[in-house]
Simulated assay, not measured.
Amino acid sequence: MTQFLKCATLALLAAAAPATAFAQTLGFATLQPGAINHVQAQIISKVVQTATGMQVRVLPMRGTAAVLSAVHSKHAEFSVGTASHMTTAVLGTHDFKGRAKVNLRVAFTALAFPIGIMVRNNSSIKTVADMKGRRFPTGWKAFPNGIPLANGVLAAAGLSLADMESVPTSGLIPAANDFKVGKNDGTTFAVGAPKVAEINAAIKGGLRFLSMDNSPAALARVKKVRPDYFIMTLKPNPRFAGILGPTNVLGVNLVITAGAHVSNDTMYKFVKAVAENKAALAKGHPSFNGFFPDKRMAKQYSSVRYHPGSIKYFKEKGIWPGK
């Protein structure tokens, strides 16, 4: 009888325990603190946890290659990054040559993401063309996506990293720290990132993002770097440190990537939670004001596939334009 009561008690306790205590923890790989992707991953994770009860843990990593590799190898379920970099990973080209990450899927397209070259506001560098021969980060071993992003901005002025005075760097945050202490004359970074605000407050006179030429010829040069790059115009905004007037910057499509190992049900719940909670996302970070839960989150790409769980949600909402 005593044994029966013990078993019954354990059964009741198990039934009363929160479901999340037994839930799988989902890993969300992203860049280190200071990068805007890290903030965005935190906000998305919080929204998904609140809406679904699924546990999502943010996993900071050294660079974009490590982020995508973690998802491909099932050490994480999700990541955030550019569509163009995901494409090179899936196809095994550029910095992923011979190391194709075929297990990557698109969860959804988040927003158009602005990237620019920041310089000191009191610098004599006024245009992207003025960067020629200046000290600029190169190497980017831990953040290989830094190479096409920098070349994308420079291409508007007919330049590339080959035209710069090389200052070797390992990644995004180290390059920004070098800029902060004067070791380089400029560096690429996402507009609106926490690190940009930090540097703007720390250096005398603040910083300024260079405006790109947005002529058809300039855009054609940019697209030779990556076909899905574009040019977008930003206006001064309290959250955009360094945007002192209308400024043309590099636009990239930011996507949330998922592993093929993520179940359809988990993926469906994840996308549904994000799509139906834009207000909570934007409250967490204003960049999500640029997220639109319509056909834009199901934007089609030529070389990467959406996860079946995402497609199920898109079809239910009538926003799936794909085949």
Rank of each mutant, 00 (worst) to 15 (best):
M1E: 13
F4Y: 10
F4E: 13
A8W: 12
T9G: 12
L12R: 11
A16V: 10
A17W: 06
A19D: 12
T20K: 09
A23H: 04
L26D: 05
L31M: 11
L31E: 07
P33E: 00
Q40L: 15
I43K: 10
I44F: 06
K46H: 11
V47H: 06
T50M: 08
T52M: 03
G53I: 03
V56W: 05
P60S: 04
R62I: 09
T64Y: 11
V67S: 09
H75D: 14
S79R: 07
S79Y: 08
T87D: 09
T88H: 15
V90Q: 07
G92I: 06
T93D: 09
K97D: 11
G98Y: 04
K101P: 02
K101H: 13
N103V: 05
N103K: 11
A107T: 12
A107D: 07
A112L: 13
G116Y: 03
R120H: 14
S123W: 10
V128A: 08
A129M: 06
K132E: 11
G133W: 08
R134F: 07
T138A: 00
W140Q: 02
G146W: 01
A150L: 02
G158R: 02
L159R: 04
S160L: 04
A162D: 15
D163Y: 12
E165P: 06
E165C: 12
P168Y: 09
G171K: 03
P174Y: 09
A176S: 15
K183C: 12
K183H: 15
N184R: 00
D185L: 10
D185N: 11
G186K: 08
T187C: 14
A190C: 08
A193E: 11
K195G: 01
A197D: 12
A197I: 01
I199G: 00
A201Y: 04
K204P: 01
A218W: 07
K223C: 09
R226H: 11
P227N: 12
P227H: 10
T233W: 00
P238L: 06
F240K: 05
I243R: 04
L244M: 05
L244H: 10
G245W: 09
G245D: 14
L250M: 08
G251V: 02
L254F: 05
L254H: 07
T257H: 02
G259A: 10
V262I: 09
D265W: 05
T266D: 15
M267Y: 06
Y268D: 10
Y268T: 13
A273G: 03
A275G: 00
N277R: 04
A279D: 15
G284Q: 02
G284Y: 03
S287I: 15
F291I: 00
P293K: 00
V304D: 03
R305H: 14
H307E: 06
S310Q: 01
S310I: 02
Y313L: 01
K315S: 00
W320F: 02
P321Y: 06
G322L: 04
K323V: 12
K323L: 10
